[in-house]
Write a protein that binds this DNA or RNA. Structure first.
Lengths: 246, 246
DNA sequence: CGAGCTGTTGACATTGCTCAAATTTCGTGG
DNA sequence: CCACGAAATTTGAGCAATGTCAACAGCTCG
């Protein structure tokens, strides 16, 4: 139960927040599931959300924990992961602002979630959210669509994990990060808030292989590494060719 | 476009069937999404389904193809897969009778589907199905639940692909097949309708490694191999221990 | 300034892959 | 029912990609 970086004496994982948040002023509303809530129903939405800040490295929820809340990410970056009994970890996805997490069919979370950067969460009790889903058709449309997108991403990741080489894995990862970046940067810059360990556990590799592969790509001139958490593509088309042709 | 085993001169992939099927007499109704359709709405359901038989090895639909239909599997076993340009294949799942496939957020299928055994499909035009989903709340509940289950399975498979050894992969696969088998067999028998190649492409291995691992497990006494497509566990608890403790 | 991370690099080990051949299984026709 | 050929599976030998273990470098924070 002890978290490595937990130096706060505060009670954990208890969303504490404004009873009346202004959902209509939310920065990420347009990207989030909330966009499916009509202006007329805004009050209902605002009434059920609370807020929670999570520091880097801190647990949002653990695999197997009873699922009470679903969350929208207001800001920050989150990792989802599953563990084996001996500690091996597979990161199943990275989420960023506007993304939604916590809906499960079972009543326990099927994976753990941790903050990578400082994270602001918009929390909804599942019992309340389910009522909202039942009452507002566009919300369930949106959620069904989102889960189909997630499923497509998961299948793409299975292809990566099962059939790509280390080089292809890293290139695919960098390209997806680039193409999905929120304010799409003009130059070919990609920001990587997560550690090499996180990248390794996402791609089914070791940190050493990730590190060596970064170095190899840099030596080839396919990427530049201004610093550990930044990658730049001098020629992104060359990268796209390399990603699937090798 | 040529399919290896296609020796029929018949037009392909055109569902041909009874205009009025008796959904209430369907063998797999209780397992399928159709169970969420109230008896009163049975006629609506029956009116939009048609049927299609697919021979082993034949394509049901291809990745990227425009998605016209969704399917329920009435009988038989299906593989879903994604391909890389050079032909490497990742099987993302095996489906059996009662399973549902073909709902996508985009308008193209995100993966291909092929019959492993002779397959009977219950076909629904997406335009019709979507109307059904919109009109019948329990149907969308069921579909949302099903997609959450699929997602959980996909994440479990990512853990397998990224972090387990060949031995653990095969044992996990056999145990899941055993535990999810439809009429749960009393003895520890598992039937594997798919080829070694399919198993390899599902587990992110080569056929040789799959074959060698089967042999090794047999030599250890963990499994018996009465024939290529049948596995028996003399002591299933020993298998469960081996699957996650190694 | 030193401790402690995180990331990189090097040397070596190992799992699982490749290529090749033997063997078994299975469908087909006689 | 049996024989034959094709396909699927198994087995063997060698190898390569990636993992393991270890040392080192760079950065941050007290």
């Amino acid at each position: 139960m002890s978290e490595p970086n937990d130096m706060t004496g505060q009670p954990k994982r208890v969303p504490s927040g404004h009873a009346h948040h202004r959902c209509d002023q939310c920065d990420v509303r347009h990207k989030a599931m909330c966009a499916a809530v009509d202006v007329a129903d805004n009050d209902r939405l605002a009434a059920i959300v609370s807020h929670r800040d999570v520091a880097p490295g801190q647990v949002i929820f653990e695999e197997g924990e009873t699922a009470d809340y679903a969350y929208n990410i207001s800001s920050g970056e989150v990792r989802l992961y599953k563990l084996l009994p001996d500690g091996r970890r597979q990161i199943t996805g990275f989420l960023a602002s506007g993304d939604f997490l916590g809906l499960v069919s079972d009543d326990a979370y099927a994976y753990g979630a941790e903050a990578i950067t400082p994270v602001e969460l918009c929390c909804m009790r599942l019992t309340n959210l389910e009522r909202l889903i039942a009452d507002i058709p566009p919300v369930r449309e949106k959620l069904l669509d989102m889960s189909h997108d997630e499923l497509a991403a998961a299948q793409e990741q299975m292809l990566l994990l099962g059939r790509k080489t280390a080089r292809e894995k890293l290139l695919s990862f960098l390209l997806v990060r680039h193409d999905h970046a929120d304010p799409q940067p003009e130059d070919g810059t990609v920001h990587l808030p997560m550690s090499r360990t996180d990248i390794a556990d996402y791609l089914g590799l070791t940190i050493e292989t990730v590190s060596r592969t970064f170095t190899a790509l840099r030596d080839e001139g396919l990427i530049e590494l201004p610093d550990t958490h930044t990658v730049r593509f001098p020629d992104i088309e060359a990268v796209r060719d390399a990603a699937e042709a090798w």
